[in-house]
Design a protein around this nucleic acid. Sequence first.
DNA 1: CAATGTTTTCAGAAACGATTGAAATCTCAA
DNA 2: TTGAGATTTCAATCGTTTCTGAAAACATTG
Lengths: 181, 181
Amino acid sequence: MNENSRDARRMAVRLSADTMAEIISFWGFKASMGRIWTLLYLSIEPVSADVIAEETELSAGMVSMSLQELMQWGLASRDPLSTDRKRRYIAETDLWAIIRRIVRERELRLVGRAVERFKKAVEVLEEAQKKHPDDRDVAFMLERLRGLQDLAQIGYRLVENLADLGQLSLSPIRGALSRLS
Amino acid sequence: MNENSRDARRMAVRLSADTMAEIISFWGFKASMGRIWTLLYLSIEPVSADVIAEETELSAGMVSMSLQELMQWGLASRDPLSTDRKRRYIAETDLWAIIRRIVRERELRLVGRAVERFKKAVEVLEEAQKKHPDDRDVAFMLERLRGLQDLAQIGYRLVENLADLGQLSLSPIRGALSRLS
DNA sequence: CAATGTTTTCAGAAACGATTGAAATCTCAA
DNA sequence: TTGAGATTTCAATCGTTTCTGAAAACATTG
């Protein structure tokens, strides 16, 4: 009968790509980036843009833009070997490195800005407290605000540690992640 | 001069509410929920819907819907004391409990579904491998797919542990969080 | 340096989620 | 029980983000 395995592979790619798309878009990336990365990750050979477009049912334009964004995040790269006219792409497989970079460049920035702004809000209120030392509303708000500030700082340190490979008993995870490539 | 502290408080609330809105919408909640929760959290007295609408510049409808969603997540509740015609609302302050609940009810579901679906994809391919035992593409894809499955499972356990108060040296964090209320 | 095929860019279309506004419903004090 | 105010609901609107399609730019080969 000699039918080949294409259909099963297509099915498996579609299932995983959709799953990955959901996870990745929860983390604020575009779903199409997740789909494309997954396709690359599951392909034994580098894949060209037109094949990506066909398999993911995205337009050539979207594929081009998504690939660039994936490459900017270090999640994919051009296959240096393919000397062909067509460019072919491969997925970055070191997931631990990926996670680390994303956490550092995005979450850390986000939380860092939050820390700054809570600090600013505290300052505003402290200023007001000088003028109105007995204002209960101000005192209460200041106390709560300091709480939020602490929380943001804890979050920052947590993310920072995660980014710098973590303290927090993450080594078994790292091991498992590195086994993935 | 006897001017009061309203302006400074408004300013501080706005700053913090915007900050919180940004963080919370990164986590997939609506920004307006973050604003409202922050206003409640920083107010010494329970706050009525019309005041919320005024301070946050949201419509009455949005305030109503957001409050319901906040209450569904246990992030706010009606003030049981106010016997007034107007209902007044207060913020849940036990941030650790909040985080735990959200992680358990949302992230755990999300990651759990991912685990299921990767498993399904692996099954599809294993089926194909029976028919085509020597297909290199299938073998390769299956290997990678198992990697993703492992990753999802690690993620699941991580989230699960976090939800059940964590193992992972989280106790200092918990302490700090509990000091916030 | 053409000719051909590939990739990028970008204006606008489509899809999606958040928000409004107003009608419907509910609540409670009189 | 009724009326006035408070709250909820939901269709329509608004704003954002994603995506397409086609033109422009680019690269490779003869």
